[in-house]
Structure formats: C-alpha cells, structure tokens
C-alpha cells in the first residue's frame, strides 16, 4: 500500500475529522507541545551544561542528572502524544514532509545521546568516565536546537 493511500485513509478516519472540526483542538495541542518542549529543553540544557562543566559544578554530577532526567523522559512522552494527535489530524501535511522525517531522526539521535550520557550516572555509582562527555553534552544541546528548528520548519515545507 502506498503512502498516499495510508494518508488518505488516516485523513478520512472519524478521529482525524473530529480533531480538525473542533477548531480549538489543534492550537491547544500545539501549545501543550511547546510547553513540553520547554520542559524537555530546559531540563536538557541544565543537565547538559552540568555535564559540560559549566553550571552548578559544586553539585555532584549524579544528583543533577538524576533530578532532571525524569522530567526529560516525561516531557518526551507528552511530546510524542501531542505530536501523534497532530499527525492524525493533518497526515497530509506531516507524513510526506521531509523536514518532519529529519526531525524524527534528530529526536531519536538526541534522546539516544541523552541516554548514553546519563545511563552510567543513573545506575552504577562512580565509574570513571573516559568518554568525551563535555563535547557530547554540547552536541546534545545543539541537537535539541536542531529539533526545534525542524519542528518550526515543518509548517513551511512541501
């Protein structure tokens, strides 16, 4: 089955039509999406800056990372859920959009990096770190910025 058939089917589902028919749903879902972005990016920024040795260096690394990681994970869940609603509502705008797929690749990359950087700290105590943590922390911040830029650009591509 080709992608255009899937899109046409999804577009015609009662759920998709219902979301589009109630005018306040899409802007409200988008607003919640942005609030969740601020939570994810804010938590990423603070803990990545700690990993990079810039912020709160007098506090133990483990404590800072452990404090913010659950917020990142929960915000990601909200983002995936609100994102899914937007896909269901307007599959024709999203699923054929190259910027959207680039954004998805970047999200997977950024969150994988987040886990790679944090997992040793969330689990076993005090393993000696040999990886280039600081550079990777900056990369993580950069990747999240790229995700945000792609997200805004979805509306301008096709």
């Amino acid at each position: 089955m080709s992608s255009s058939l899937i899109i046409a089917w999804l577009y015609a589902t009662p759920l998709s039509t219902a979301i589009r028919d109630v005018l306040w749903v899409i802007p409200t879902v988008q607003s919640i999406h942005i609030i969740a972005i601020t939570v994810l990016f804010g938590s990423a920024l603070v803990s990545d800056l700690r990993l990079a040795g810039v912020l709160a260096t007098d506090e133990p690394l483990r404590g800072v990372v452990r404090r913010y990681y659950p917020w990142m994970r929960n915000a990601l869940m909200v983002l995936l859920f609100t994102g899914l609603i937007m896909i269901i509502a307007e599959p024709d705008r999203v699923l054929v959009n190259t910027t959207f797929w680039l954004k998805m690749v970047l999200v997977v990359t950024a969150f994988t990096l987040t886990l790679l950087l944090r997992r040793p700290l969330l689990r076993a105590p005090d393993e000696r770190e040999k990886r280039p943590i600081k550079a990777l922390a900056w990369l993580s911040i950069g990747l999240w910025c790229a995700v945000i830029i792609c997200g805004r650009w979805i509306a301008y591509t096709i």
Binding site: I34, I35, I37, T38, V39, L40, F41, G42, S43, L45, V46, C145, I148, I149, G151, R152, W153
Partner: peptide, 14 residues
Amino acid sequence: ESVHVIGIAIVYGT
C-alpha cells in the same frame, strides 16, 4: 520563529 521558540524554551524551562 525558530530562534524565538528556542528562546522561549530556555526562558520557560529555567
């Protein structure tokens, strides 16, 4: 707009 959203994320996040 993109830079505005990144700014918003930092403002509200912090």
